[in-house]
Simulated assay, not measured.
Amino acid sequence: MSNPATVIAAGGVVWRERRGTRQVLLVHRPRYDDWSLPKGKLTAHEHVLVGARREIEEETGLQVVLGPPLGVQRYTVRKNGGTADKLVHYWSATPLDDAEFEPNSEVDEIAWLPVDKARTKLSYPRDVDILDALDRVVPVTATLILLRHTEAVKRKDWESKDTNRPLSTNGTGQAERLTAVLDALGANRLISSDAERCVATVTPYAASIDRHIHLWPEISERGFDADPDGINGMGERAWKPGKVTVVCSHRPVLPTLSRELGLRVGKFSPGAFLVAHRLGDGRLIYERFSAP
């Protein structure tokens, strides 16, 4: 009998440049005696980006920053005496340090290998397909995360100025959980509407990395209503080479702001965000996520 519950997992292709050669990191799992890409199952309610980063660190000892997506594997695994579908999401990942690997029960050996050698060492053709996707998404010249503020107190329940309307209890929790997500993406530049609900959305992350929040009144609801053309030219200011920039704004402003930033226009529920990576050849790679 099959089990309908899908197993969700995440991981990455960890890579670095050494003497002009790209190397990728493979892990050996003694339980299966195989060589694979670092990955693992998500914990309950864990965001897929956070889970990918955690699993990579647990299996390799390395903290990483996630880059563009590399694809999703789909296959069947044994579960509870039956079978279940398994989905594994992969991202490009670059290490933040050179931590020393310590063997454990899940992974007893790791290997940094040139891409060609890694292709022949991997035990599964599906991992080779993910590895081959890396060439198509590097190098990244800049990354932009377009974010709608998390859930706020309803307008009808707030009697003061709308610009001072705070986050709800749920929205505060979303902002706290967003911290780990933005950290996994390596966000290092923060831009926000000057409205309280936007500032409060990115404040927990700003505090965690000790970074200043750049306030842009033009992307607030009040500023946009007063001067819709104030957004013109912001694309050049928002995209910054070598940076992972967060831009936090409001639902009525996001369609126009998206177009100015050169991004796809779409619906943003509270706390939802779009991640766009600009590649060296000018292409953009998109991902869209709901609130954590």
Rank of each mutant, 00 (worst) to 15 (best):
K156V: 14
G223I: 09
E106C: 12
L167R: 01
G81H: 08
K243Y: 01
R177Y: 03
T179C: 08
V13Y: 01
K161N: 14
L279H: 03
D129E: 14
V244D: 00
Y90G: 00
A133D: 04
D225G: 14
L167H: 01
G282R: 05
H89F: 10
F268L: 11
T43H: 13
H89D: 02
W216A: 13
K240R: 09
L185W: 00
T141H: 01
L26H: 10
S290D: 08
L49I: 10
V181I: 10
R78C: 13
T141P: 03
S220I: 15
A118S: 07
L66I: 01
L144D: 00
V65P: 05
A206L: 09
L37M: 09
L263R: 03
K154W: 14
S168C: 06
G173Q: 12
A9M: 08
R136F: 15
E106R: 14
G223Q: 04
G173M: 11
H47R: 05
R74G: 06
V50D: 02
Q174T: 09
Q23L: 15
I219Q: 03
E58G: 10
T76S: 11
R155K: 15
G171S: 11
V72Q: 13
N170H: 15
S192E: 08
P4N: 05
P252N: 07
L274I: 03
I191C: 10
G20V: 03
A238Q: 06
L37H: 07
T150M: 02
I110F: 05
E109A: 13
S105L: 11
L37R: 07
L190A: 05
A9C: 08
P103F: 01
T245I: 04
I219K: 04
I231W: 04
A93N: 05
E151Q: 13
Q63L: 05
D225A: 14
E109W: 11
S123W: 11
S105I: 12
I209G: 04
L178S: 02
D34A: 10
S193Y: 04
P95R: 09
L62T: 07
W216H: 11
E159M: 13
L25S: 07
S258T: 09
D194K: 06
P255Y: 09
P103A: 02
G223N: 06
R155W: 12
P68V: 01
L146A: 02
R251I: 13
V27T: 14
N164H: 15
R78G: 15
A272R: 07
H212L: 10
V48E: 06
A195T: 13
I8A: 08
D229H: 15
W216S: 11
T179N: 03
R136V: 10
G67I: 00
L113W: 06
L66C: 00
P30F: 04
W91R: 00
A142S: 12
S193G: 10
A99H: 15
V88P: 08
H212Y: 14
V138R: 04
D127W: 08
G51A: 06
M234A: 10
E287P: 00
E218H: 08
E55N: 15
V14F: 02
K121Y: 13
G81C: 08
R54T: 08
G20K: 06
R165S: 03
G61N: 02
